[in-house]
């Protein structure tokens, strides 16, 4: 229950709760006292980080994720190109070997604007909801959304420029995204038009890949340019309602990244690579309440933190799986 509340708080843009002195479980207090005895020097940290940087599996989850993302999108392209009934349609709605699938956010918009839901859309939406409920909600963002992949590239360029002070990273308040979400819902309901779809880089890119490029790609380019020069990962962090929709689905998901405070050096490598670093605030020294903490629903389960963590303090876990096995 606490996990869900904290998850939702972070998702709507509030800062992660900080534990007071009495909030931490006794075993964590003991553990932290033990940890403090062994001083971590800069040299020691460098050795640990360098060891991780040389590890053969340092990009394990990233590579799996990129492969999944590319294959998922190419399945759409190939299904149309070769006219096979594998994955027909686009990311907004499709048929997987004949079964209806509907993107949760696109379906939500259609329901709000049209105010009438046909059975096929119900089937497609429920199927996709259950699918992402099981797989982690915002997992969609980092494992399927084509804009995410482009934005990761733009982020690399951004970081390269920012290091040389040629680009800025203007930060916005994350509550803004919740505000957009509510405004989109109200405007869609009132106007009767699927207003967000015009701006959605996910839909634009998916259709461009399958049906051919168009002018709409200029909008996607403008977004990427904004992220390169003005604000790191701005669209996914501060604006995109798709992320909120899938985040809500993910609140109940068993697939999570789990943090173990035991071996953590609190050096912040994970937060530096994270799309949504606030979800990893628990890795700041003194923030952990318990020995293990599940990362909240705003997490896209991209695995960058799992890949970079030099002490394996962040790992994927499926809640309840250990009990089943």
């Amino acid at each position: 229950m606490n996990y869900m509340i904290e998850s939702l708080r972070q998702l709507i843009g509030l800062d992660p709760a900080k534990p007071g002195p009495d909030d931490r479980l006794p075993e964590v207090v003991t553990l932290m006292t033990e940890k403090r005895k062994e001083k971590l020097t800069k040299e020691k940290l460098h050795v640990v980080e360098a060891g991780r940087a040389l590890a053969s599996d340092r990009h394990k989850w990233r590579n799996r994720r990129w492969a999944t993302l590319i294959i998922a999108n190419l399945l759409f392209v190939a299904s149309y190109y070769y006219d096979v009934q594998l994955l027909e349609g686009a990311l907004t709605a499709s048929r997987f070997v004949g079964f209806h699938m509907a993107d949760l956010n696109s379906a939500l918009q259609v329901m709000l604007a049209y105010k009438h839901v046909v059975l096929n859309l119900v089937i497609g939406t429920v199927t996709v909801f259950i699918m992402w409920l099981l797989l982690g909600g915002r997992t969609f963002c980092s494992w399927v959304c084509p804009y995410h992949l482009l934005a990761e590239g733009a982020e690399k360029i951004h970081l390269w420029l920012a290091k040389r002070k040629w680009a800025r990273d203007i930060k916005f308040h994350r509550v803004g995204r919740t505000f957009f979400y509510l405004v989109f819902i109200v405007l869609t309901l009132v106007s009767g038009y699927t207003l967000f779809e015009t701006l959605s880089p996910t839909g634009i890119l998916s259709r461009a890949l399958i049906y051919g490029p168009g002018l709409a790609l200029l909008w996607v380019l403008a977004l990427l340019a904004f992220e390169v020069f003005v604000s790191r990962r701005a669209w996914c962090r501060y604006i995109c309602p798709i992320g909120v929709t899938y985040g809500l689905a993910g609140v109940l998901s068993p697939v999570r990244v789990q943090y173990r405070v035991q071996d953590c050096h609190h050096e912040g490598d994970c937060r530096a690579v994270c799309l949504v670093p606030h979800v990893l605030d628990v890795t700041i020294r003194g923030r952990a309440r318990a020995v293990t903490t599940d990362i909240g629903a705003d997490c896209t389960r991209c695995g960058l933190c799992v890949d970079i963590c030099p002490t394996s303090s962040l790992r994927f876990k499926v809640k309840g799986l250990d009990k089943v096995l």
């Binding site: 349609g89 686009a90 993107d103 604007a113 009767g192």
Partner: peptide, 16 residues
């Protein structure tokens, strides 16, 4: 066209 624009989920399955 309001209803049509509202109901269309912009997936292109008709195209295919």
């Amino acid at each position: 066209e309001q209803e049509f624009l509202a109901a269309c989920i912009k997936c292109g399955q008709c195209v295919q």
